[in-house]
Design a protein around this nucleic acid. Structure first.
Lengths: 131, 131
DNA sequence: GTTGTATTTAACCTACTAGTTGAATACAGG
DNA sequence: CCTGTATTCAACTAGTAGGTTAAATACAAC
């Protein structure tokens, strides 16, 4: 019932499932092959795959009694689009803020910064590294 | 105890929290401001913020009795790096597969494709669109 | 110091998640 | 047809997630 973005993020919020995705990025694999390196039961892995499948991250074909699992790389776009949208939004905002602070720096000798400006300036120290 | 990638994906696997992140990308906000548009209690929003904070997606400063929430956009990099790594891996693999299939297409008139090749070829139909 | 506002903590409930084991299903091969 | 292999389904359990209300804390302002 949840939208796909919710399902995809939830699917990847599990280290075992992320590891499965990592391995599937190299080659398709069957349930048993995928389960082999983990300590959990094959049934548990089958459940993980159901979650990944429901999220659209993988699909399964049929090959006799085997169910090869295949990674659907296009689903990644859904996430990156969401992430990039708000990252960009945030970055733009910080750029505007930086511009304001720079113009305040220019005045610093003549006019002393009040407490509001000081705290606003302090808040730029947080995460500006990619710049 | 979970690693940050797990926490970040889990944090974003909730529509309310994603919406908060979206709003915080535009401007910092207090708990009450954030809670206002949602139907849930302020306490519930406070919990959501704790999850976001534990994941590193937001930080909080102090301003009298208020606790302004601030989005840490650098955490997005963690996700995009993970995603891009495996997307690239998968894409490279498909490119190799496509190359193999193209060379098979070249032979198609003289030599009929066997069932293995046919099913392999069919599997390319899945998600090649960004190409 | 009492009152009002912002926020967190505590205790509790319900639903879901990830795991288990055991049984069922589907198919291949002798 | 029987056996082995691959996978799923069913039923159960322990832990966690997201919500609630009530109480506690922190601070401002009068």
């Amino acid at each position: 019932m949840a939208d796909q973005l919710t399902k995809v993020f939830a699917a990847l919020a599990d280290p075992t499932r992320r590891d499965m995705v990592a391995r599937l990025s190299i080659a398709d694999a069957t349930v048993n092959e995928l389960a082999e390196p983990y300590e959990v039961s094959v049934q548990a892995v089958s459940k993980h795959l159901k979650v990944l499948e429901d999220s659209g991250l993988v699909t399964r074909t049929r090959d006799a009694q085997r169910r090869p699992v295949h990674l659907e790389d296009n689903v990644f776009d859904l996430m990156t689009k969401w992430i990039e949208r708000y990252r960009r939004q945030a970055e733009e905002r910080y750029q505007r803020l930086d511009a304001v602070l720079e113009s305040m720096d220019a005045d610093e000798d003549t006019q002393h910064a009040d407490s509001t400006a000081a705290s606003a300036k302090e808040s730029t120290a947080h995460s500006r590294k990619g710049a």
